[in-house]
């Protein structure tokens, strides 16, 4: 469904991505792990053209394109196949929850308002916000905002939803509600590419885990392979730091 090849990206002299290959099939839930600064977020942003990669190829279904040279039209068509959930939600401050969810339908896809609102309400119901349609983002808690963010992506029925550390800006007690929603849509068969520090999500929900370090993919495999039997020393080090209990299993 999505294949990317040899993605490179530098910010000034700092080479953030050093040739990433990645492929995602329909129904996959792929989690990318890695320390801060390992390039996870940049990779996601390059896939969605929020950053322009210095080099790299991608194919979305039938469509092949160059991540560096793609034209406006191509970028637009790719973005319509991808959903994106931001770390800091980025809900539209001047729109209600329902308007946030429907804007991509009414304006982006020229769908009639009633039809869009029906889809929007369904999406908000799915994330447990059936009583918050007309609330503005500032009237919602962080967890609720992020759930609107997820509904905004889900409503567009994209081929893949990219999650960029969706729980990192949340208070610990609000993380659960967002992860719960993500788990739910994963179970419904949504294809997801998730950058997160939530190991439990990677262990329980992902069918593939990718470990990135310093701009390269160090190791990838099933959660069981990565968490119980990592092959690379760098993966082991990372897991030791992030999962205290892991120390005892060695």
């Amino acid at each position: 469904m999505l294949r990317i090849k040899n993605v490179h990206k530098s910010f000034g002299k700092n080479e953030v991505l050093k040739g990433i290959d990645l492929s995602i099939d329909k129904g996959d839930v792929v989690v990318i792990l890695g320390a801060s600064g390992s390039g996870k977020t940049t990779l996601l942003r390059c896939i969605n053209f929020l950053e322009k990669a210095d080099q790299g190829k991608a194919s979305f279904g039938e469509v092949d394109l160059d991540l560096h040279q793609a034209g406006k039209k191509e970028i637009q068509s790719v973005r319509k196949k991808l959903g994106f959930v931001f770390q800091n939600y980025n809900l539209f401050h001047n729109k209600t929850a329902l308007e946030n969810v429907t804007l991509g339908l009414t304006v982006g896809r020229k769908m009639p308002r009633e039809m869009a609102e029906e889809i929007g309400r369904k999406a908000l119901n799915k994330v447990g916000l059936s009583d918050r349609y007309d609330y503005y983002p500032q009237q919602l808690s962080g967890g609720q905002q992020q759930r609107v963010g997820i509904a905004r992506a889900v409503a567009l029925n994209p081929d893949i939803i990219l999650f960029d550390e969706p729980t990192s800006a949340l208070d610990p007690e609000l993380i659960g509600e967002v992860l719960g929603v993500m788990k739910k849509i994963a179970r419904e068969g949504t294809t997801m590419l998730v950058v997160t520090h939530e190991m439990s999500f990677a262990q329980d929900v992902a069918n593939r885990v990718i470990f990135m370090d310093q701009g390269v993919i160090v190791e990838e495999g099933s959660p069981r392979e990565i968490f119980s039997n990592p092959k690379e020393e760098r993966t082991k080090q990372f897991l030791r730091r992030i999962l205290p209990e892991y120390t005892y299993t060695i």
């Binding site: 969605n48 929020l50 973005r79 991808l82 931001f86 980025n90 304006v107 982006g108 896809r109 992506a153």
Partner: peptide
């Protein structure tokens, strides 16, 4: 206006002009 607003508009498939106008 937070640049994230513009990025979010792009991710839901709005053009630059639509993003400016609505957001």
């Amino acid at each position: 206006v937070d640049p994230g607003q513009m990025e979010a508009a792009y991710t839901i498939g709005l053009t630059q002009l639509q993003a400016y106008w609505h957001i």
